[in-house]
């Protein structure tokens, strides 16, 4: 399916049907635990058919202004203040992350500023708090795919390093699936935001297993040398 034939209403049914919570099949679910890293870093997200995301005119203007400001000196980039990069941008960084598969939730433990993303294995978003930089994620297994539905995003992050905007109406649905004999994790993400995009669109992120990697406790301000600003 490409971005041109995805009705927005389809997302509402993404979680319809019998939900088989991983809590009841802890041992039987695919093992996606362990360290992963983006196989090919993306600076600019494209749709699965290689096109630019379908920005609405106002959002396109925002994007153009952001890109113009990014050229010099990038001080409008929230990442340079070490604020959480949001989803999917955090997963696109050249930093590894570790997945821990618990019984009632999964944890994606990112090296980038020691952030974490929790996927609650529950059926709905009724306990949502927020808005949050990384949104609030719920998940379930559909066959061999982990389906992750995330809402309650704030509107301060970028979708990618180029400054692709979104609003607080952002809603993402990811299908994560092992490939390559377990050496790859394919994450097909559907991005919907009626205030930013004319229609939902999809892109694909590929992560490769990074065996033996130890996820360090990254200190973003220190890594960027900005801790020196406060050391007198």
């Amino acid at each position: 399916m490409n971005s041109t034939d995805m009705p927005r209403a389809g997302l509402a049914f993404a979680f319809a049907g019998a939900i088989s919570l991983a809590a009841s099949a802890h041992a039987a679910t695919p093992d996606i635990s362990g360290p992963w890293i983006i196989a090919q870093p993306h600076e600019v997200l494209k749709t699965t058919d290689g096109r630019a995301p379908p920005l609405l005119p106002a959002a396109a203007a925002t994007y153009a202004a952001t890109k113009a400001a990014v050229s010099t000196p990038k001080d409008n980039d929230p990442d340079l203040r070490c604020l959480p990069p949001g989803v999917p941008r955090l997963m696109l960084q050249s930093f590894p992350f570790n997945i821990v598969q618990g019984k009632t939730m999964y944890a994606m433990m990112f090296e980038w500023n020691h952030l974490n993303r929790i996927i609650h294995l529950v059926a709905d978003h009724s306990d949502t708090i927020g808005p949050l930089y990384l949104g609030q994620s719920i998940g379930h297994w559909e066959g061999n795919s982990l389906v992750v539905d995330t809402n309650s995003y704030n509107d301060t992050t970028w979708l990618d390093d180029s400054g692709l905007p979104h609003s607080d109406q952002l809603h993402t649905v990811e299908h994560m699936k092992l490939a390559g004999g377990g050496t790859e994790l394919i994450d097909t993400i559907t991005i919907d935001d009626p205030q930013t995009f004319a229609k939902p669109w999809q892109t694909v992120m590929v992560f490769r297993k990074d065996p033996g990697a130890i996820i360090k406790e990254d200190y973003c301000l220190g890594r960027l040398g900005r801790d020196n600003l406060v050391v007198k």
């Binding site: 635990s33 570790n98 821990v100 598969q101 618990g102 019984k103 939730m105 944890a107 974490n116 929790i118």
Partner: peptide, 13 residues
């Protein structure tokens, strides 16, 4: 604190 208990690793956030 949030504890997540996996078969190979336990994390406390």
């Amino acid at each position: 604190n949030l504890w997540v208990v996996g078969p190979k690793e336990i994390v406390m956030i």
